[in-house]
Simulated assay, not measured.
Amino acid sequence: MINQNVFIALLHYPALDRHGKIIVTSFTTMDLHDIARPSRAYEINTYYIVQPVDGQRLVIKKQLDYWLSEEGKRTNPTRNEIVQLVKLMYTFEEVVEDITNIRGKRPVIVGTDARNYPNAVSYEFLRREIENRDRDFLIVFGTGYGIPPDLMATFDYVLEPIYGAGDWNHLSVRNAVAIILDRLLSKNRC
């Protein structure tokens, strides 16, 4: 894997609701497959799903177990391959600890958001940092109405928002992950 120094995390907690209240969001099966696919295509190290609710974790675990089983592998070898990149965690702190234990140092944590932050870094800046290969990067994606500002304030970097042709940028997290990984890791740069 060329981008062994890149990890991503999808946070179902903490997340914001439309009123700014901290909530736990629900897992969707599309989040598993549609984020694992670009994770594999861009050869990242690990895709973490953070979900603290045991009932939700059971749904995720059943899917992971099936696709990692011999039956799942026979049914869809490609799905088996992409799901091998996925790790399920209870908390964001566990993600950081897992990477630190595996790689021997704490990763640079990069937050993503549809909102603009005054200290946001550009894709070009972060791409160059990743390409140096001297540090590990954890790119964090929110669900619901985004990652709480208090948590965002603890991150090392905040990536600039995705802007399309206009000013509307409320994308699904699955779309955002694919776009961001492409902008940061693609060989086909313009």
Rank of each mutant, 00 (worst) to 15 (best):
N3T: 09
N5A: 10
V6M: 10
F7L: 11
Y13N: 14
H19P: 08
G20E: 11
K21L: 02
I23F: 01
V24A: 08
V24E: 03
T25R: 03
S26G: 13
D31T: 10
D31W: 09
L32V: 11
H33V: 03
H33D: 07
D34M: 03
I35G: 05
P38Y: 11
R40C: 05
R40L: 12
N45G: 11
Y47I: 06
Y47V: 10
Y47A: 10
Y47G: 03
I49G: 04
Q51I: 00
R57D: 01
I60R: 06
K62V: 03
Q63K: 06
L64K: 09
W67Q: 02
S69N: 12
G72F: 08
K73N: 14
K73S: 08
T75N: 05
P77T: 00
E81L: 01
I82W: 03
V83I: 11
L85S: 05
L88G: 04
M89G: 04
Y90W: 04
T91W: 02
E93N: 06
V95I: 00
V96L: 10
V96Y: 09
V96N: 08
D98I: 12
N101H: 13
R103V: 14
R103W: 15
R106P: 12
P107L: 01
V110M: 05
G111R: 00
R115N: 15
R115F: 13
N116L: 11
A120I: 08
V121I: 14
R127E: 02
E131A: 02
F137R: 03
F137H: 03
F141T: 13
G142R: 06
Y145L: 07
I147E: 06
P149A: 15
P149Y: 14
A153Q: 15
T154C: 10
E160P: 10
I162A: 12
W168Q: 13
V173H: 06
R174H: 00
A176I: 00
A178K: 05
L184Q: 09
C190V: 14
